[in-house]
């Protein structure tokens, strides 16, 4: 067995241990495994949403002042995508992953010729040299500020992929490191699942916002939402860049 096999085994054991811990009743989180027939399914699926008390919030939420408000994100679309419906988002990035994997499977072989016979003109080449870091930094900014301004992981990942598309358009010999992309992508996916499982372990619900929410409107706020969005951004950026690379080198 190679090193990566040991690593995978180790990771699987840790994940299994966390899941086992969460369900076996050693901690009191309302999710202990019961006999079949004794489980109240409505409690199982939506217990936290039914028990959630949003009317208790007597004070108004003020930007840049209120601490620990409901879900903690200034951009409430982000609250919905990365907190209330985070499981749904996990499914979405899985769909994107399957699309990228299918494309790579059909087109295969990264060592074929580029679609372009020659480099772009001098002006475009040198212009891309300046624009690439500008756009890359813009993508990172959009990802990191997903809970404050419009955008987030998907949009920022798309901007990063645009920057890489510009590189491909300008230089015919530009190649991406597909191994590196795969590593980034897997890292992001696994970290997403681990964050979900930590939520399951501490609060008894998959992908709970288990960190402190901080002051609304500042960069380090909204608990796990920015972390999840950064992981989504890495994953989407890597997948879209891989798709572009596959299509151009087809």
């Amino acid at each position: 067995m190679r090193f990566r096999d040991y690593l995978s085994l180790f990771l699987v054991i840790i994940l299994g241990f966390i899941i086992f811990q969460a369900f076996d009743g050693t901690i009191d989180n309302g999710l202990n495994i019961k006999q079949f027939g004794e489980v109240n399914l409505s409690e199982r699926t939506s217990i936290h949403y039914i028990n959630k008390d949003v009317n208790n919030e007597s004070t108004q939420i003020i930007y840049n002042e209120s601490k620990n408000p409901e879900s903690g994100s200034a951009n409430y679309v982000t609250s919905i995508i990365a907190n209330y419906r985070a499981l749904d988002t996990l499914g979405e990035i899985t769909v994107l992953f399957i699309a990228a994997a299918g494309l790579a499977f059909v087109l295969g072989d990264h060592n074929k010729n580029n679609a372009f016979a020659s480099d772009a003109s001098f002006i475009v080449k040198i212009g891309v040299k300046i624009l690439f870091p500008l756009l890359f930094l813009l993508g990172i900014y959009i990802i990191i500020h997903g809970h404050l301004t419009p955008g987030g992981g998907f949009q920022g990942g798309a901007v990063i992929a645009t920057a890489i598309l510009l590189k491909f358009l300008a230089y015919k010999d530009y190649k991406l490191n597909h191994t590196g992309l795969t590593i980034l992508e897997s890292f992001a996916g696994i970290s997403f699942l681990i964050i979900g499982l930590i939520g399951l372990y501490t609060d008894g619900s998959f992908l709970t916002n288990f960190l402190a929410n901080g002051t609304i409107g500042t960069l380090f706020s909204a608990g796990v939402i920015p972390i999840i969005y950064i992981l989504i951004g890495i994953k989407v950026g890597a997948e879209l860049s891989g798709i572009i690379s596959n299509l151009i080198n087809a």
Partner: peptide
């Protein structure tokens, strides 16, 4: 600055 930088590049690219 972004628009002033990119607009001439784009139009040069179209013309060429």
């Amino acid at each position: 600055i972004f628009i002033v930088l990119t607009n001439p590049i784009g139009s040069h690219s179209i013309a060429r």
